[in-house]
Design a binder for these strands. Sequence first.
DNA 1: CTGAAAGCGCTAACAA
DNA 2: TTGTTAGCGCTTTCAG
Lengths: 335, 335
Amino acid sequence: MATINDIAEKLHISNATVSRALRSSGYVKAELKEKIFRTAEELGYAPNPLAVGLRTRRSHGISIVLPSMNNPVSVELLENLEKLADRNGYHVMISTTDGNIETERKYVQLLDAGLVDGTVLVPGPRRSPEEEYLQHIRKRNIALFNRDLAGLSLDVVKSDAVQAGRLAMEHLACRGYRRIGMILPPLETSLAQERLEGCQEGADAAGIRLEEKWMLRARGTTPAAGKAAADELLSRQSRPDGLLVLDNILTVGVLQALREKNLSLPEDLGLVSFDDIVNGELVGAGITYVGQPMPQIAEALFSLLLLRMEGQPGMARQSICLPVRLIERGSTRRL
Amino acid sequence: MATINDIAEKLHISNATVSRALRSSGYVKAELKEKIFRTAEELGYAPNPLAVGLRTRRSHGISIVLPSMNNPVSVELLENLEKLADRNGYHVMISTTDGNIETERKYVQLLDAGLVDGTVLVPGPRRSPEEEYLQHIRKRNIALFNRDLAGLSLDVVKSDAVQAGRLAMEHLACRGYRRIGMILPPLETSLAQERLEGCQEGADAAGIRLEEKWMLRARGTTPAAGKAAADELLSRQSRPDGLLVLDNILTVGVLQALREKNLSLPEDLGLVSFDDIVNGELVGAGITYVGQPMPQIAEALFSLLLLRMEGQPGMARQSICLPVRLIERGSTRRL
DNA sequence: CTGAAAGCGCTAACAA
DNA sequence: TTGTTAGCGCTTTCAG
């Protein structure tokens, strides 16, 4: 590749002048400037991002670090962030951690290493506070999605998980469901806990008593785990008439279970999923769900990052919470 | 961040020695080496990838450039590649082009700029040969997925699209379907063309005549386009009894159309999709499809790239074609 | 308005 | 076995 030195040499000028011209920083005579641009074109010049980055300490890259991409929500996040990044002159690095905190740390550290200028992080579950490596990351250009990590002073953008729980429960309640069952993910994340909290609030408000025996905790966040939980719940003699599934990946498994047992929605059971499943409108009569505003979430995450990367330093930590919406489809009965 | 110079200074040795020790290249006394590692640890040293890259011309990054992520096949590709990359010490940059060739060029050029060492490219449609920028890319560490770009001498990994067509058609034929309809994507890519070719072969072999009137070209590769095409096809007085949908995104739209028209699979129509749709097993009686071996494809793509990036130069261009499989679910009738 | 020079952090000849 | 030196490509004072 041609370098600015090649251009300088060819034009018998100094590389400093070339640099100034190409970046329109500092003075350089219009005439010369044009000549420089022409030869740059001729030689097929493109700046070396590594050199620029080394010198300026800005890489114009962001990274997205998340547990996995097997969730449509993650993919949507990714898609939206990528578009925003591109539009703002940033490229994006992506890394999946599979819930492994060591991997997570490895990639978040690339921030300090200078490979990227900012990071959108969806933290995996923490087993103990000691594992928390984030406090040792110097560069604080990190925005978290949907997880609150206490006392870390990082920007957070989340959707209102408590509201989501309330909405879902209210919906079941006002559709006449009274015996409510729940399939829960492992409650390791604040997200899951808040959803549950919201459900409880909603139940209280509607005068519904949630039976412990109908609240099943899945062993993991996989379709298989969801199916296992649903299998158990649905093989009981006494069954709920409405079901809340607090994680869309679990929902997939629950639907498999229902299909095997020849139960249909909403005839045999009402169901509300937290987050949509892909093609949810095509499954049975359509899956009713509480959905997050992913484009807005991505926008908020990126703006915060951008402020940290390009704005004033010392900006106070921000926490943004966006409202969710219940999308009614056919898995709950109509009024 | 601490640098090797900080370590060198603290230990009153030269940075070269530190470098050698840390990278275990060249000689350095075991004792000293250990001391170096200890202080590196103490100081929280991490190498600056930009500096390393600038010096060595190796970034240890690959990029994945594709039209979009709204296809589960793309996402699977991404997931698999990311795992392979991580396992081999590479990080991955992702960019979606939205079919825009300028964007595509911009990101592929990062190869020459040195930001990444290799690129997996899913080219968008080309309107004319003049737009073909790829010949001007100097660094040939590019592996294409499922698109053959003639005369470019780039590695290609594809699944056998012709076989896919044959399999799908044979399946319909041997299930007794005779009046075969097809929903086609715009035939801008070799992939679509080869699938169609395979269908024709399969039809010939089975003694089925494909009626032009039942072959509809969708205007785009979106669910909406698929729905529109299906709407038109299915509102005819004379209808096919078996339907081949040559693109899974179109399949989603076709299924919407069927649902609106209250047609069910396989009672009213047999359907085979090219590539699965997400949660395809949950839609109706399940969607029968011809699927690509994405993990193997990703592996092949990454190995080729790795050979180019780390192996001997001058390796001849490779073209790998992997077999597809038909997965029978419920959208075609059983024997 | 332009150039000389220093240096970002690291590696790699070469010398000692 | 270690150090010296040069330089990857670029930006940025500082002088002129």
